[in-house]
Design a protein around this nucleic acid. Structure first.
Lengths: 213, 213
DNA sequence: AATATAGTTGTCTGTATGGTAAACTAATTG
DNA sequence: CAATTAGTTTACCATACAGACAACTATATT
């Protein structure tokens, strides 16, 4: 074995941040290399193109992020609490992002997916796949809520697609408007879609979502 | 007066199509000029930059499109019918687009807004402004529905924001998934958000939205 | 220490890009 | 028809870009 380095992960971190804070199209390989502190030769040693790097980076990032969602959507929690926590998490997280970057950045997968879906097929497939996995969390929460008699939603898949559209829609709006406030009440929309009488929930908000280290 | 030409509108048409079918970042001035059949010198005669052209084009396009929404949201129609028609329109329109371009393209304003919001301020403001105007249609429909006793929605603005997030979210998903099917049932989500008992509506679907010439 | 492996660097090339300037052409008006 | 205005074209420049490559360095294994 030769020596090891973290240049690969630095490149992945860099591209994620550049795409998220800007866009895929305007992010250049030179920029990525500069931010990562990696020379262009090394870039081409590790990745064959910008799109391959981006796909790898989103894949890797999702593996990490999944753990957070596993916690939020823990099966030990009442199903509607999980959804509530998911909304709270979005607000919390985007607020942090706003503090860090001065801007609300929304959902990386949707932003990138929306931008490249007609152009970059490999990347596009990766994004679709991640978003589909995200939806599964919602779907099983809805199914559990129905089974528990909390809501009437025999078609959990259909409901989860609605909620997903709404949730990602709110995040996209937050990005475009550069405003986190709409996220604060996002759960109201989710519960409305599910036909939950919100008053009974609003008085007992879920505990704050813990940020992992 | 010297001679006249339609090079300006050809440029605006071209940039709209290129951004919508692709993205803002990857659309070059040379591409725009080629598609419009206009030389680069002429481009710079009419517009000072790509972003200025895009802003003008979106502005102009919105002026045209507004007429369509005025029809869909006609105050003479029952308020919930207006929303239903709006959803039907999205499905119809995106289906046409899919036929024409082979791809579902979603909402131009959201796609562009999401892409450039951290980078192009002029453009960003224009997009925000158009989206806000779009929302107003929904808001007044919700207010009228509440006044008519069809729904219980004392805060029409808040509800309209939810519906807007959902509606644009469904369109964005349609683009990313390249699938119009979710749009067919979009009205279900809208009515769920409004707490409408959908069964009573679903049996009496609104008339097909007419396409203006 | 020898050698293979893993990682790094600076440089080079061809092309695409935005942007400018100046020459040119067509329509309109007095 | 001459002057003016509006619109068009071509040629050109500097820069930024993706991508390739060959030379180089550090580490691990034997």
């Amino acid at each position: 074995m030769g020596r090891t380095s973290d240049a690969k992960v630095r490149l992945m971190d860099a591209v994620l941040e550049l795409i998220w804070t800007g866009s895929y199209g305007t992010t250049t390989i030179d920029q990525i290399c500069e931010k990562a502190g990696v020379k262009k030769g090394s870039f081409y040693y590790f990745f064959e193109s910008k799109s391959h790097l981006a796909a790898a980076a989103f894949d890797e990032s999702w593996k990490v992020n999944r753990g957070k969602l596993d916690g939020i959507f823990s099966a030990t929690l009442p199903p509607l609490d999980r959804l509530r926590r998911y909304c709270d998490y979005a607000y919390q997280f985007q607020s942090e992002i706003r503090g860090k970057y001065g801007k609300v950045l929304g959902c990386p997968q949707v932003s990138l997916g929306c931008e490249v879906c007609t152009q970059e097929d490999v990347l596009q497939q990766k994004i679709k796949q991640i978003l589909e996995q995200k939806r599964k969390y919602i779907e099983s929460a809805v199914r559990d809520a129905h089974a528990a008699g909390d809501i009437d939603a025999p078609d959990a898949e259909a409901k989860s697609k609605m909620i997903m559209a709404y949730y990602e829609g709110v995040l996209t709006q937050a990005r475009i408007q550069n405003d986190v406030e709409a996220l604060k009440d996002a759960y109201l929309g989710v519960f409305a879609i599910l036909g939950v009488r919100v008053c009974s929930i609003a008085t007992a908000p879920a505990a704050k979502v813990q940020q992992p280290a």
